[in-house]
């Protein structure tokens, strides 16, 4: 029995999670292409299957059967390792996100918040190593840009997380969703949401902060030398990161797996579906931003972070501390 609880159940849960996330990734690409097409008054993919629903499968088959090319002067071991290192953090961050009442995806640890911070910290390895090991100047420049961007935006992100943590009063994400919040807490949290979302956009290298892969300056940035399934892994990492961060935002700001006003709170199996609905709405936000906002220059990106976001985040944290001490 010990083995079943210790090993079998977590493995089954992980496999289920990975299957769901990979399917989610495949259909997120479809969702994005369809939505972008609509924003630009086009129709979008409509050839493979009804409404183009089989398009992701066609794309996957294409990526798998492409020729594998490894640059001659690349550091082979690191070159092969980098796509995997990009994908793994996006998947394992899910371990602590609650999917239903009292049910975390894998484990309820008392350092849930810190787990998110820790994994966010190692997310940049895949990109740095990909850029360096390809032995290509565009790749290296893209990687340097990207890691500088991710490390910089991690700062305000971490400070915002600390503020949420102080409001929640505990490190566990499972108990965070269950803890009732006062009305001023919700308003105070939602005031911060746009800034938090900007940090997340930069962390996931999504448009308008996709400077690591600006095609007019850097070809494709860190992934220039990657093709076939290895490129698909980077692609997968980016999109699964979008899903993951949406789930985190849904958990932190919008009550995770719960319906508003405690509706149907006893129906436990409803949790994952509610969470999925919230994730889909937040993903729409990602794509909406991509369709409507232009890319800033690199120095503007950095200035915005260091001269605006970080001071604001620190101020927010100080006010949150005062609110927590005096009102809770």
């Amino acid at each position: 029995m010990d083995w079943i609880n210790l090993l079998l159940l977590p493995v089954l849960r992980s496999v289920a999670l990975i299957v769901v996330l990979l399917t989610g990734f495949a259909y997120l690409t479809w969702y994005e292409r369809k939505l972008l097409a609509r924003f630009q008054v086009r129709i979008g993919p409509n050839r493979a299957g009804p409404y183009g629903l089989l398009q992701p499968i066609a794309d996957a088959v294409k990526a798998v059967f492409k020729e594998e090319i490894v640059p001659n002067m690349a550091d082979k071991a690191v070159y092969m390792l980098a796509p995997a290192l990009a994908l793994i953090p996006a998947l394992i961050i899910w371990a602590v996100i609650p999917v239903a009442k009292g049910v975390p995806a894998i484990a309820d640890v008392n350092i849930g918040f810190l787990w998110i911070l820790a994994i966010a910290g190692i997310e940049s390895y895949g990109i740095i190593l990909a850029g360096w090991s390809s032995n290509n100047n565009y790749s290296l420049l893209g990687a340097l840009r990207s890691s500088a961007q991710m490390i910089s935006y991690e700062l305000p992100l971490g400070v915002f997380l600390v503020s949420i943590l102080m409001l929640a009063g505990g490190f566990s994400l499972v108990s965070l969703v269950e803890t009732p919040r006062a009305w001023w807490e919700w308003i105070w949290l939602w005031l911060m949401f746009p800034l938090f979302f900007i940090c997340i956009l930069a962390e996931t290298n999504r448009s308008p902060f996709d400077l690591p892969e600006t095609e007019n300056e850097l070809v494709a940035g860190f992934q220039t030398e990657y093709g076939g399934i290895k490129f698909a892994l980077f692609f997968m990492a980016e999109y699964i990161n979008m899903i993951t961060t949406s789930a985190i935002m849904a958990t932190l700001f919008f009550g995770g797996y719960r319906l508003p006003f405690g509706l149907l709170g006893d129906v436990i199996w409803l949790g994952p579906f509610v969470l999925a609905a919230k994730v889909i709405i937040l993903l729409f936000l990602f794509i909406w931003v991509r369709a409507s906002v232009g890319r800033p220059r690199y120095d503007q990106l950095m200035q915005f972070n260091w001269k605006f976001l970080l001071p604001v985040a620190l101020g927010y944290m100080i006010i949150t501390t005062l609110l927590t001490v005096f009102l809770k």
């Binding site: 350092i111 810190l114 787990w115 911070l117 820790a118 994994i119 966010a120 910290g121 190692i122």
Partner: peptide, 10 residues
Amino acid sequence: AAAQVIIYAG
């Protein structure tokens, strides 16, 4: 453990 990963690995 978390601090180890955040500070050293990250």
